[in-house]
Design a binder for these strands. Structure first.
Lengths: 144, 144
DNA sequence: ACCTAATAGTTGATTTTGTAACTAACAAGA
DNA sequence: TCTTGTTAGTTACAAAATCAACTATTAGGT
């Protein structure tokens, strides 16, 4: 049977995005999973706390657009491993402040180095201009 | 606490890719889920058969980089709904050829139209040049 | 022909995710 | 001070993804 001339799956953005995201996500996963046995949401939470410091679960959810149940579970696991501490807010006792422990910070700094190296590796084969456009376009797409 | 100056999560490609892919995937999901109750892997299989015609499960897996168990289950569901037929190869009886039925083709053509419209909508706000670079870069990243 | 390895595809057990309902705490108006 | 509504976060159950083990069939060497 002949190829459909009107539509090419290889140019359909949700398809391309899914392929690229899955490839990079799986590659990067191997790095943090092997070292720390972390899940995807866990490194994301770890990185948010590493970069922005003290935050609440909702803060992270709002910034990263991750659902609160995912964050709740990631925080639980990170707390069990003593990567972060949870402190109740005295003014509003619904709120919990999260903060990395020394161990959490060490893990974050280690993974941040790895992430940076991985990012450099990913963009080999693309010109700096192309990378800039790619980042801009991805931000745009995430915001739609 | 201050922001880490050495590393910005908002430029880290696996993070950006995951955000963009998730956003577009969820949006597009609503369209095919509402109409046909399909899962992500199911529309992908449907599209492959719609575009390339007769294929085996392995062919699809190789082309789309989807794991064979996912494909196996997607094919089962599509077959139950009479969207495709499965035919044993006479030469090599391990192999099964998959092909869309008339109903499957109708669903594919309907969804293809929707996909095209959605793609157009996604790229509003980006110049044609930017879109071209984006597509090229995503293909590169998927292949790494 | 026979043994071993490889391939296509399926199934089952375990993990992970998603959805909805829930508790606890606060807020704001009557 | 009572509703009523909202927000932070957790938990329970259902849906889906992942991983390993499995069947059936073919291929390749000896």
């Amino acid at each position: 049977m002949t190829k459909d001339p009107d539509f090419d799956l290889q140019t359909f953005l949700p398809y391309l995005l899914a392929q690229a995201a899955e490839t990079s996500s799986l590659d990067f996963q191997r790095l943090y999973k092997d070292r720390y046995g972390m899940l995807r949401t866990e490194w994301r939470v770890l990185f948010h706390l590493g970069i922005y410091g003290r935050m609440t679960a909702s803060d992270i959810g709002a910034r990263a657009k991750i659902h609160k149940t995912k964050i709740s579970r990631a925080v639980q696991r990170l707390a069990e491993r003593r990567f972060l501490t949870r402190t109740r807010d005295e003014q509003d006792r619904r709120v919990e402040h999260l903060e990395l422990t020394a161990g959490g910070r060490a893990a974050y700094e280690d993974l941040r180095r790895i992430a940076r190296d991985y990012d450099v590796m990913l963009t080999e084969g693309l010109s700096p201009d192309e990378v800039a456009v790619l980042r801009k376009a991805l931000k745009h797409l995430a915001a739609v």
